[in-house]
Amino acid sequence: MRATPEKATRETLAALRGAIARLGAGVVPDAGRKVAGTFSLGAAAPDEILGGGLPRAALHEVFSAGSADAPAAAGFGLALALRAAGDRPIVWIRQEFVDIETGGLYAPGLVAFGLDPDRLILVSAPDPQAALRAAGEAARCPALGAVLIELFGAPKILDLTASRRLSLAAAASGLALFAIRVAGEPTPSAAMTRWRVTGAASAALAANAPGHPTFAATLLRHRAGPAGRTWFLEWNRDRHVFVERASLSGAVAAVPVGRPAAPAEFRRTDFRRTG
């Protein structure tokens, strides 16, 4: 089909508007589906450091410090996926062992976190190899919003080649890929960003009740920007944005760029002030 001059003009204008938006806010509007832009976290401080947000067509790794922080890593990964996916379906590929070790995904809990379970396709992989193959398959489906791969430990098969393959698939389809590594140790990989996430003390509600999901997220590595910062982020389910906890309580000083995070001390400070 030949494009009429009017249509061509319209398209050019749309592309230019997109470019301007990118320059201004660092965020590409969700309208252009094939356009693999960035997605922001919604919190001002990390978005500024990240240069407006995280690239969508890429692989991002989320490590949990240990098996105990698995729900924090899963929650953080899911929150990023929700930011990236818009309203498109999400595929969550889970190694079976993760279900045994940290409990199976629970639909009412997904609702409570802000994901409509009808949007989720859950793949239970018997081993890491099957998980990676399923991920490779899912990563080539541009109709999806995001793909989460949750693996336990440090499977040998997840090497630089495997992560590179996933990254390329993500780049080709414009899909955001999140590898959640429960109790995994960072190894060389082709991921765009690498996070380490632990649970953090939440802002107490009335009668000292536990508050909203709160994460201490450390950006260990970022291919296109500075890394090493730790942010205390609270997930707002209703608006689907992260809110920086430090700014809420005003208690935690920002960790300087480039300095390895010292979460233990910070968490303690945080806790003393709020609790």
Binding site: A107, C141, P142
Partner: peptide
């Protein structure tokens, strides 16, 4: 075409891993 592409993906994953491994939640 989105829904179709997702359904195709489900078919492929189920063919590879078995139908009981590609799941959806139901209330």
């Amino acid at each position: 075409g989105g829904a179709e592409a997702v359904a195709d993906l489900v078919d492929r994953l189920a063919a590879r891993l078995g139908r009981d491994r590609v799941l959806r939640f139901a209330a």
